[in-house]
């Protein structure tokens, strides 16, 4: 709500010095000024909204004044209560500094470990990769139109599976995965805790040169991105020929 400039009333709030911690809830209002006078803490610069807000109302044992002609009146009162005290005003952040607890050298909780796992999720994402037995892939490739393979790159995973990456997926009965950064995660699962995925990605794959493929049992394996090659019938047959020759 916009401020009513014609009705600019200056509000003052005073609390006892020992109640300093109760002002924590309004410390972030950086339009406030703070001053210290004897055993009282004074605040000024409230807007009319702030004066009526829950944060102010919930401060116990406060005294709320408005100022007129150098006198302070209790809010909603017509009788002057006291004179305006003279003091040095400073911004509230400076008057109420935040103290951080010092480092606890005796903290021995370092052995606690987070278990990273895959958890089923209801969030739906488009599948991006699949792992398929070589014989199923072979029978599809031998009749497939080349255009359907054009966006897909692949690698052989021992003993006899192929890893296919790219959209649109091939119409094969296979395990389907989706992609999150450089992680290839089984469809229907996501990393838990999800907040750690950036750190995990940095630890496992700092240079971003690998695909990290997760299994449902939270184990993973790594495929270098430059190990994948474009999928075609010729590529498949030549690879199989190579494998058979090295096996002999």
């Amino acid at each position: 709500m916009a401020e009513d400039l014609t009705n600019a009333i200056t509000f003052y709030l005073s609390v006892d010095d020992i109640q300093r911690d109760d002002l924590g809830a309004i410390r972030h209002w950086n339009n406030l000024m703070i001053g210290f006078c004897e055993s009282l803490i004074w605040l000024k610069g409230f807007t009319s909204d702030q004066v009526n807000s829950v944060e102010v109302k919930s401060i116990p044992d406060k005294k709320l004044y408005y100022e007129k002609g150098g006198k302070l009146f209790f809010k909603d009162s017509l009788l002057p209560e006291r004179n305006l005290p003279s003091m040095l005003w400073s911004p509230i952040e400076r008057g109420l500094p935040v103290k951080l607890p010092s480092l606890n050298h005796n903290y021995f909780g370092l052995e606690e470990k987070l278990k990273i796992s895959l958890e089923p999720t209801l969030i739906e994402r488009e599948a991006y990769a699949m792992i398929v037995p070589l014989n199923i892939l072979e029978s599809y490739l031998s009749t497939a139109p080349a255009i359907r393979l054009s966006n897909i790159s692949w690698a052989i995973i021992r003993p006899n599976f192929a890893f296919l990456l790219g959209k649109p997926l091939l119409p094969l009965a296979a395990k389907v995965y989706w992609q999150h950064q450089d992680f290839i995660i089984p469809a229907g699962y996501e990393l838990y805790p999800p907040l750690l995925s950036d750190d995990l990605s940095y630890i496992l794959n700092a240079k971003g040169t690998n695909w990290i493929i997760w299994n449902e049992d939270s184990s993973y394996f790594v495929i270098r991105k430059n190990q994948l090659s474009a999928l075609s019938l010729g590529s498949f047959r030549r690879s199989m020929k190579n494998i058979n020759e090295t096996a002999l």
Binding site: I147, R148, K167, P168
Partner: peptide
């Protein structure tokens, strides 16, 4: 029929 439902992506 080669392109199937992916014609909009492929060609």
């Amino acid at each position: 029929s080669d392109l199937g439902i992916y014609a909009s992506q492929l060609w």
